[in-house]
Design a protein around this nucleic acid. Structure first.
Length: 882
RNA sequence: GGAGGAUUAGCUCAGCGGGAGAGCGCUUGCCUUACAAGCAAGAUGUCACAAGUUCAAUCCUUGUAUCCUCCACCA
């Protein structure tokens, strides 16, 4: 047989792209038609606003590992890729572009704007797709979907109309979170609270009858024009007598009553709260309880409207605040201003301060959906890895609030509701409507708003498989098996998918929910564009290769823990890939002149049996790890099997056999090496996909592609405890002898006699049998296995371990007198240094004036001198005994 | 206010009641028939602190401290 040559140095650029194309062209990512149980995953669709970051790399690496692992188990495996239209985010990107051109979206008009946004979508989609390909993601591109493609749009309408028909969608005038910059409502969980320093203003509200005044505290005096009451706690003794009296709202001529409400905290401020139903969620609720008018003060752009006195109109709320305070002060209404830090909501997309805003919006009534989703968890239909997220999930479900699904945007799924301009009828329909069913007017207008992005992505696990049609894909691949996602979208996405799937499909969309940590920088900060601390996956791939990136992330991804990395971290995977490459290169060169022979178990040496046993153990560890999504454990098992067991011990052990064995022995040795290498490629393929395929294809004993080869399975029968124990002891013996030599600083070229004293046993027989091997591991000239204590061990350095004593005959390697002399010199030198050090340390001036570090350093030095002296004395004693 | 996480080697972190670990870094010696991105040997720990349960605690319980997330509320 001819040797197979791999290029001298490992360079992933030589083959990663080529292999990806090869897989893709061969259709390897498509599910097989095996009749085994399916395995499917839907990819969390990245937003089409940008490029993929390290979080995506982690997430998709883990999915790729899972999917490749199960594909190699012969199961029909489907990984559905896709992207999300990301309403607000994408619209913002386009609006920013327009802004640079001095345009607003209104200048383009809805149709043109959406057209332009599609172009942006296309561009980013292409980048994202090529990034996923670079990473090596083995998703089935023929199944790729986009949340706004035709099929998914149909699914969105089906979902909306069905829920409406069930009475679970309603429209109403409510106080919602509103981002004035994005010009749209936000869902509760799209608001990020941030503690900011602010002021608390105490303001006098005089009684309408002129009999004095009360004082209220507010952080937002400019909203006073919307006050429709002042509330006190009904139990508050201080104010019992004033309840029901009227107040004159300062700077206006409006009168408002004093009412009682339980939500008022008697301890806070004066215990009197101004009630502004249109601009505060609590006040809104309070207002509903007391049937108070809600006066909206804002225009959609965040400026004050006609409901405030003329001088403030058109101002931004924040600007108006200063003016109102000034006017209150002038009028003698302002009592005091105190500093008051409080949490203020910000838009999660543009970070503008969110305003509570009274407007007409669409909502999904969540209670019944959440109950189903909660039941799914209680039944064990879904399981979180790690389990602790289940508390978070349950808590959110138990305290669910209705979901505001309308957005005042242009980019997204238009709400499928039409209004007859003639008779006023509202029509909710799965298909476009052109005629009013009541008055047959054609003068219809569709609702201007679009749906929240999550209203399409919550259908993802089944809409991507063809729902609402009854498709073959749905039949074959739904429910999916595993969802891999970061914890920051448990509420946005995961919880809602479970709810939608329960109601539309009648079952959970997946069973296992793997929650990954977030990727952080080395200082523990979240990677973000604004901090500029992100690591670009493409740059990592460029420098280290896709395999190195995937393996490193997997190795570091301890269950659910955040992953802290910098660019250098990826050297871990890179070094490992390099090691694999070199081992394979070496072994393939050894094929020269050899023939692969049938591997007959009866002819295997203990070392051979041992490496098979190690392989079996690694397969077991990986199996258990993968069952429980403990990716780091699987990666560690692979690393230590390949590097420590296979390379450091087994390949090294094979070298003497390859040099001096008979032709027959050499052929067998090479055959076993190749067999293990072939199995190792399969074992490692999910974790290092490109390099294993590249090597696998060159193996003389490969069949087909490694991507679809069968995964090495653990079997209890393959356990070989005898071989494990025997080789374990041999390794231990090698280690103690090496350590003894290293401690005595014996040059590597000096080969010494070694006597191993142990009782007669299987181990002793094994050691005798493998004497040549031990000689090479121990750099020994000869090995004597002494089972009756008859060997003279004078002049030998003893090293003991459990089960044996090893004696290394160092006498010949060292000139004893010269060595003693050298050691004595060393003692002398160190004693002098020690004395100097002690003197320094006992000097009061030094102790009291020197920097603490200097003192510590000196103490360390002293200890070091002492240790050196001690060691030298020990060695002299030993040498003298020879 | 509620919930959760973290605290183990210089750094980043595994560790699933019985011997304190890995990678990187560091020290020493080696270009050994693949790999110096390597090989071999080595040093470094109050497993945050305090009690408790147990024959046995890094691991379980309780409390404390520091750091970090999330949720809720804040006139």
């Amino acid at each position: 047989m001819k040797a197979v040559e791999l290029s001298k140095a490992y360079d992933p650029k030589d083959f990663e792209d080529r292999i990806y194309s090869y897989w893709k062209e061969k259709g390897e990512f498509a599910p097989s038609d095996s009749d085994k149980e399916h395995f499917s995953i839907v990819m969390p669709p990245p937003n089409v606003t940008g490029v993929l970051h390290m979080g995506h790399a982690l997430n998709n690496s883990l999915q790729d590992i899972i999917i490749r692992y199960y594909r190699m188990h012969g199961r029909p495996t489907l990984w559905v890729p896709g992207t999300d239209h990301a309403g607000i985010a994408t619209q913002n990107v386009v609006e920013r572009q327009l802004q640079k051109e001095g345009l607003r979206r209104q200048d383009l008009g809805r149709e043109k704007f959406v057209e332009r946004t599609w172009k942006v979508k296309e561009k980013h989609h292409d980048i994202i797709k090529s990034q996923l390909e670079k990473m090596g993601c083995s998703c089935d591109w023929d199944h790729e979907r986009f949340t706004m493609d035709e099929g998914l749009s149909r699914a969105v309408r089906e979902a909306f109309v069905t829920l409406y028909e069930k009475g679970l969608i309603y429209k109403g005038k409510y106080l919602v979170n509103y981002c004035p910059k994005c010009g749209t409502a936000l869902a509760d969980d799209e608001v990020e609270y941030e503690n900011v320093p602010g002021k608390l203003y105490d303001v006098r509200y005089p009684y309408a009858d002129g009999s004095g005044y009360i004082t209220v505290a507010t952080t937002r005096p400019e909203t006073m024009f919307g006050d429709t009451a002042v509330a006190v706690n009904p139990d508050d003794e201080r104010y019992k007598s004033v309840v029901g009296k009227e107040l004159l709202l300062p700077l206006t001529d409006r009168k408002i009553p004093i009412i009682t409400d339980r939500f008022v905290d008697m301890e806070f401020g004066t215990g009197m709260v101004k009630i502004t139903p249109a601009h505060d969620p609590n006040d809104f609720e309070c207002g509903k309880r007391h049937d108070l008018e809600a006066i909206n003060l804002l225009n959609p752009d965040g400026t004050l409207n006609e409901n405030v006195p003329e001088k403030y109109r058109g101002m931004m709320a924040e600007d108006a605040r200063a003016l109102v305070v000034e006017d209150l002060e002038k009028g003698g209404y302002l009592v005091k201003i105190t500093d008051h830090a409080h949490d203020v909501g910000h838009c999660y997309r543009c970070h503008t301060t969110v305003e509570p805003y009274l407007s007409e919006q669409w909502f999904v009534s969540m209670r019944s959906l959440a109950d189903k989703a909660l039941a799914a968890w209680k039944n064990g239909d879904i399981v979180f890895y790690p389990r602790r997220w289940e508390n978070t999930y349950a808590h959110w479900m138990e305290n669910i609030r209705d979901w505001c699904i309308s957005r005042q945007l242009w980019w997204g799924h238009r709400i499928p509701v039409w209004y007859c301009q003639d008779c006023g009828k509202m029509i909710v329909s799965r298909t476009d409507v052109t005629e009013c069913p009541d008055c047959h007017s054609h003068n219809l207008k569709q609702d201007e708003d679009v749906l929240d992005t999550w209203f399409s992505s919550w259908l993802w696990p089944f809409s991507t498989l063809g729902w609402p049609d009854k498709t073959l894909d749905l039949e074959k691949f739904f429910p999916t098996n595993t969802l891999v996602s970061a914890y920051d979208i448990i509420f946005f996405w995961i919880s809602r998918m479970i709810m939608s799937s329960e109601i539309f499909m009648g079952k959970a969309p997946f069973r296992d929910i793997v929650i990954t940590g977030l990727v952080r920088d080395i200082k523990g900060r979240k990677m973000s564009k604004s901090l500029g601390n992100g690591i670009d996956p493409l740059e990592v791939i460029d420098r280290f290769g896709a395999d190195a990136m995937k393996f490193t992330l997997c190795y570091l991804a301890a269950q659910g823990q955040d992953v802290m990395i910098d660019m250098e971290s990826f050297r871990l995977g890179s070094r490992f890939a390099n090691k694999i490459w070199n081992a394979a290169r070496y072994l393939l060169l050894n094929l020269e002149g050899r023939e692969l022979v049938e591997i007959d178990r009866a002819r295997l040496s203990i070392m051979d049996r041992w490496i098979y046993s190690r392989l079996n153990t690694a397969a077991e560890t990986i199996h258990d790890a993968m069952e429980n999504y403990r990716f780091n454990e699987a990666a560690q098992a692979i690393y230590s099997f390949f590097w420590n067991d296979y390379c450091d011990w087994y390949i090294e052990a094979s070298k003497p056999r390859l040099l001096s064995g008979s032709e027959d022995e050499k052929n067998l040795a090479v055959s076993v090496l190749m067999d293990i290498l072939e199995k190792a490629m399969r074992l490692m393929h999910p974790f290092l996909s490109f390099i294993t395929e590249e090597i696998y294809q060159k193996l003389p004993n490969h069949e087909g592609d490694v991507i679809t080869a069968l995964y090495p399975e653990y079997s209890a029968d393959a356990e070989d405890k005898e071989a494990d124990d025997l080789v374990g002891l041999l390794q231990e013996a090698s280690r103690v002898v090496r350590a003894a030599r290293a401690n005595l600083q014996i040059a590597p070229e000096k080969k010494l006699k070694v006597v191993i004293r142990m009782p007669e046993s299987a181990s002793a027989a094994f050691f005798r049998q493998e004497a040549d091997l031990m000689k090479s591991f121990m750099t020994a000239s000869s090995i004597v296995i002494d089972t009756d204590g008859s060997e003279d061990v004078k002049g030998a350095f003893p090293a003991t371990a459990i089960g044996f004593e090893a004696f290394v005959f160092v006498r010949d390697a060292i000139d004893i007198d010269a060595e003693i002399k050298r050691l004595e010199n060393e003692i002398q030198k160190n004693t002098a240094l020690l004395e100097a050090s002690e003197k320094k340390l006992s000097n009061e001036n030094f102790i009291s004036h020197a920097k603490p570090e200097a003192i510590e350093k000196e103490k360390g030095k002293k200890a070091e001198f002492e240790e050196k002296i001690e060691k030298a004395k020990e060695h002299i004693k030993l040498l003298e005994s020879f």
